[in-house]
Write a protein that binds this DNA or RNA. Structure first.
Lengths: 213, 213
DNA sequence: CGCCTTGTTGACACCAGTCAATTCACGTGG
DNA sequence: CCACGTGAATTGACTGGTGTCAACAAGGCG
């Protein structure tokens, strides 16, 4: 079990790590950059996520992983993963499955960035984070911690920070959610789902997991 | 070996196929839709691609796969894939690897849609297709078949068809490429790479594969 | 207290979407 | 052989969503 302070890179683009990282506590993200310096976050990770399992088979990281908050995580050596694939087919399929969910989320985000309006995409992201955190038992009623800045969420949705803020105002003015001091409270789930055109199928959850939060 | 005529669905969103499809000949794509009916293509497939290998482990398709041209493909029963994962760890890692490349391409597209200008993203897509087709031996000098309509490419890049056309005019007017009768000819590769901010690392190719086309 | 980060808002510019008309290639039937 | 219809590509005019620039407010922290 190791830990990493807020803001630091867990893994750097172009590196060739010899271990993969299971996030135990804290928030992290994977990001890529364009030559001009603009940043795009391609994935947000919550506790329980394997943030760079794919580095086990890809030669070189195509992006960085950065800690949004102080994080605790478990490092799994690639040798160990290789051993698992040699001896435990069930576990191997489970690990593979987890990278497939990542890809499914990527596809949903592609749809959102390409074909949804800004406010819808922001609402969709909040819905997704709520569901993912709830599965991990990290929500209290309709409330959850979201220790990210608006700049980071703008980089996630592909918006400018100003326009992200405007989209957020839209959701607030419709009384769909509040967001104060890093705590999001969803006040109208059906309304938020509608505004975000959210359908959780792509998360491949067993809806049985979604007993009362 | 089965075949499918142009325009038909290979796999439909929400279905639970019991086999996966290896594309042998033709072009295909995976697409998702928004309630309003707008379409986003999340991946384009060329011969040699396993178009829905992920359906082996995901319960339900989160998107459709559609044939852009008449296609020939090999169907691999999921039972057979499961057997492979039980008995052939090397092959299992190879299959897993191929789904990880898919995800890496998704991430690069996310970066493009979120942070690149339309013309750059179009240039980037042409670069990517050229490289992927060249690896499969489907280019002749700087030329390759691209039997897709501008509407389809617009749905890939998240643009309207009109704006996609304008971005294409930009590349043509700079003499970076020509595109006539479904055949693309790259006339200035370094220029196209520059305009598209293209760096092929994310495709995880062995550059040794890229001997003269 | 003063600086820094973050959030918020307004004004304006610009990139991209929409609507619509035109052209062109092609295929079909008279 | 030609008229016609269809789908695709192209272009112009206009609208509108989003980005940029800039200013200011609020809070945390040395």
């Amino acid at each position: 079990m190791t830990s990493l302070p807020k803001g630091r890179d867990m893994v750097s683009e172009g590196s060739q790590p010899h271990f993969s990282t299971l996030l135990i506590e804290g928030f992290a993200a994977r990001d890529k950059h364009v030559p001009s310096g603009k940043r795009q976050i391609v994935s947000i990770h919550v506790p329980g996520d394997f943030v760079d399992l794919h580095s086990f088979l890809l030669k070189e990281m195509d992006h960085s992983v950065v800690a949004f908050t102080d994080c605790r995580m478990a490092l799994v050596p690639h040798d160990r993963l290789r051993d698992i694939t040699e001896r435990y087919p069930n576990l191997t399929r489970l690990l593979w499955f987890s990278t497939l969910i990542d890809a499914s989320i990527h596809r949903e985000w592609l749809l959102g960035m390409g074909r949804r309006k800004a406010f819808a995409n922001v609402a969709h992201l909040i819905c997704e984070l709520y569901i993912r955190l709830r599965v991990m038992g990290l929500t209290r009623d309709w409330r959850f911690d979201l220790p990210l800045t608006q700049q980071e969420l703008a980089d996630t949705t592909g918006l400018s920070i100003v326009h992200f803020n405007r989209a957020l105002q839209d959701l607030r003015s419709r009384h769909l959610l509040t967001w104060e001091a890093g705590v999001v409270t969803i006040t109208d789930w059906p309304g938020l789902v509608r505004r975000g055109e959210f359908d959780p199928d792509y998360l491949q959850l067993n809806m049985d997991d979604l007993a009362p939060a």
